[in-house]
């Protein structure tokens, strides 16, 4: 079998090829090349046409808009994201913990979202921060929340003529923040479990609260409904709501493998974050 492969030189060319042939974008290739590998000395065979977009400069780089929204080009690598101080803490940290340095030099944010694996590290903090993906086709551009884009494991809303061009992260606004990744081995460890959470406290009242669990179900778990249990509550009463909240969050996640471990660890992480917040320390990241 012979591969059909295109190497577009511009985004416009890529969009044309995508529309005419449905060719699948290969960004870093760290998911695709492994998924279709065949062995030593043998070229991977793809059962669909491929277009290598790795070098499209139009989709690279990070910029910040006037209102503080951070826009990350789809082909920006984990290393580039991790080292850019303008990128919100949670996303930087998640990018810095992906694989080893060689992987982070190659893996892209567009590929991490496009792959839509529940174990992918970037969707979790992006969903916490209500980030959106920008999807472009030859005749249209649309934007939707990463949370809506990813439907379930390996399934997303990318249309056959579309390419992910960017990720947009609204400026985060929180008093306390938290991020944890539990992996097996430090390098090249696919997440076993991740959690991030933010809380905003104004005049002693919790005005925003969010949590986001990764690798604990078929997709990243958020629940605005359960989050609401804490919103509007006075911070001095928080400790009396922690157990009830933690139990409710347990109903939000649906871990498949090692469910006891994932459930117990998620509860412990949330309990820890919330009980530290309840003591009203200096604003910032809670370790």
């Amino acid at each position: 079998m012979v591969n059909t492969c295109y190497i577009p030189k511009t985004l416009e060319e890529a969009l044309k090829i995508r529309k005419e042939t449905g060719a699948v974008p290969l960004a870093g290739g760290t998911d695709l090349m492994v998924a279709y590998k065949r062995g030593v000395g043998i070229t991977p065979v793809f059962p669909f046409p491929v277009m290598i977009i790795t070098q499209l400069d139009e989709l690279k780089g990070i910029k910040v808009e006037e209102d503080g929204t951070v826009v990350i080009g789809a082909l920006t690598t984990s290393v580039e994201i991790a080292k850019d101080e303008r990128v919100p803490y949670f996303v930087r940290l998640a990018a810095s913990k992906m694989g080893a340095v060689s992987l982070r030099n190659t893996a892209t944010i567009g590929g991490n979202i496009g792959n839509s694996s529940p174990k992918g590290d970037l969707p979790q903090p992006l969903i916490l921060l209500d980030a959106t993906v920008v999807l472009q086709s030859l005749d249209n551009t649309r934007e939707m929340k990463v949370d809506d884009f990813i439907i379930k494991a390996k399934k997303n809303q990318l249309a056959e003529d579309e390419i992910i061009v960017a990720v947009r992260i609204p400026k985060p606004d929180y008093t306390y923040g938290y991020y944890r990744k539990i992996g097996t081995r430090r390098a090249n460890a696919i997440s076993k479990l991740t959690l991030s959470s933010i809380m905003k406290v104004e005049n002693g009242v919790i005005t925003d609260f969010r949590a986001s669990s990764g690798a604990a179900g078929p997709k990243v778990a958020r629940s605005r409904e359960v989050e609401k249990m804490l919103i509007g509550k006075p911070i001095f009463e928080l400790s009396s709501f922690i157990e009830e909240f933690v139990e409710a969050w347990d109903g939000v996640i649906s871990p498949h493998a090692m469910p006891e471990f994932r459930r117990a660890t998620t509860k412990n992480m949330l309990r820890h974050f919330l009980s530290v917040c309840a003591d009203q320390p200096e604003p910032g990241i809670i370790e």
Binding site: C5, G29, T30, T106
Partner: peptide, 13 residues
Amino acid sequence: GKLVTSCIIPVGA
């Protein structure tokens, strides 16, 4: 100048 693993990079990239 950056470290990469050549087993998962297609030469077309």
